[in-house]
Design a protein around this nucleic acid. Structure first.
Length: 376
DNA sequence: AGAATTTGACCTGG
DNA sequence: CCAGGTCAAATTCT
């Protein structure tokens, strides 16, 4: 695949915006092609065994990817409106690509959504660059929210009105499509659930999380997770506020995965995109299973969880951001674990094995260095 | 015992 | 007054 035009990731000489976008768009397109191909194979193998909704979802994913790629291209072609605006949504993918350089909190703060995006592979509207918004109103992108949405925010206790001072970053991530679909997306932070509410007009409740270290480090970061009305397998995650808990070297949670790992994750996602198949499809051959999903999960477990005891390392407790993981964690993926083990541990250092598997991964996603990344 | 989640009550802006 | 957001006691886990 083309991804392999890699260059030295670390050096990241800054490319021009065009180049950057190109680098991120092509892989996206290829990804779409891949998904399409996988779908084709699935149809070939399972024929009419495939359920309509499954097919529909797969189609949606493919469409979304191509739509995203197209928009990226359009944006690129027309004008770079947000060259310097950190909040420029078009930088979205770039964030992903930035290898975490140091543990500067900034990186971590802005990456969660991206990581989720990568980890869960499925690209939903979240990638729909033009639609992502910061600061509150995202309605446009909310096909599912059909206007109800009231995520406006009015927080009372703390006097600051989020609307004004807090940055909100909405993204969508696919829920694991197999196993426990209740698992909230793992974004490498540890979250503590403090509330859940039924939202008017929404089918599913919205869960409220705050940073586990809120008290200790006065970390104001919060997030809200809610399933889309029309897509049970997609979460809309809204990040509010930034983490301050990672600023301090003593901070308990240093979710930050090693750079290499990060790259690997990126690679994996890109290469292995999951076909977004149905969770329910027990009949579906295992080969169709959203490989990306579990893979990513393993990643987080492997990297972060190691240190679980030690200060809630990276992956949020229990393997993921909290959401219900606690009670839902019953689901195990033995086979997956084994595979992951083989892939990443056996041979040698994980990085090597990954390199072996995906030789030039990084560069395809390589981020051209756009320095500024800010939310979304 | 301590940490995390659940859940109904409470608070506040619109 | 209502809906969204948060609190905090009760409950469940580890």
């Amino acid at each position: 695949m083309l991804y392999m035009l890699k260059s030295n990731p670390k050096a990241t000489p800054k490319h021009t915006m065009d180049q950057q976008q190109h680098h991120t768009t092509l892989p996206l397109i290829l990804e779409g092609c891949k998904l399409a191909k996988e779908l084709e194979e699935s149809i070939g193998n399972l024929g009419n065994q495939l359920q309509p909704e499954i097919l529909s979802k797969s189609c949606d994913d493919i469409i979304n990817i191509f739509a995203t790629a197209k928009q990226m291209l359009n944006n690129n072609a027309h004008h770079h409106r947000h060259h310097h605006h950190h909040e420029d949504p078009s930088l979205f993918t770039h964030h992903l690509l930035h290898p975490p350089q140091d543990s500067s909190a900034h990186h971590m703060q802005t990456d969660p959504s991206l990581q989720e995006w990568l980890k869960y592979g499925v690209i939903t509207q979240a990638v729909d660059i033009p639609s992502i918004s910061i600061g509150g109103e995202t309605q446009a992108m909310d096909v599912s929210d059909s206007g109800k949405a009231a995520s406006s925010s009015s927080s009372q206790r703390s006097h600051r009105s989020r609307k004004d001072d807090e940055e909100k970053c909405k993204t969508r991530v696919a829920a694991p499509q197999m196993g426990n679909t209740d698992l909230p997306p793992d974004d490498n932070y540890t979250w503590r659930k403090y509330g859940q509410k039924e939202i008017l007009g929404s089918k599913y409740p919205r869960a409220y999380y705050r940073c586990t270290h809120q008290k200790m480090y006065n970390c104001p970061a919060k997030k809200q997770v809610q399933r889309l009305d029309n897509d049970f397998y997609t979460f809309e995650v809204t990040y509010i506020g930034q983490h301050t808990c990672t600023m301090s070297s003593t901070a308990p949670s240093i979710p930050q995965p090693p750079p290499l790992l990060h790259d690997q994750m990126v690679m994996t996602q890109a290469m292995v995109s999951q076909p977004a198949l149905p969770p329910t499809s027990s009949t579906a051959s295992s080969s169709i299973v959203p490989f990306g999903s579990w893979l990513s999960m393993e990643f987080s477990l492997g990297s972060g969880s190691g240190g679980r005891g030690s200060g809630g390392a990276g992956s949020s407790s229990g393997g993921g951001s909290a959401t219900g993981s606690r009670y839902g964690r019953d689901v195990e993926y033995p086979a997956v674990a084994d595979m992951a083990d083989v892939m990443f541990n056996s041979g040698s250092s994980s990085s090597n094995s990954m390199d072996f598997i995906f030789p030039c991964a990084e560069d395809k996603w390589e981020a051209p260095g756009s320095g500024d990344k800010k939310h979304c």
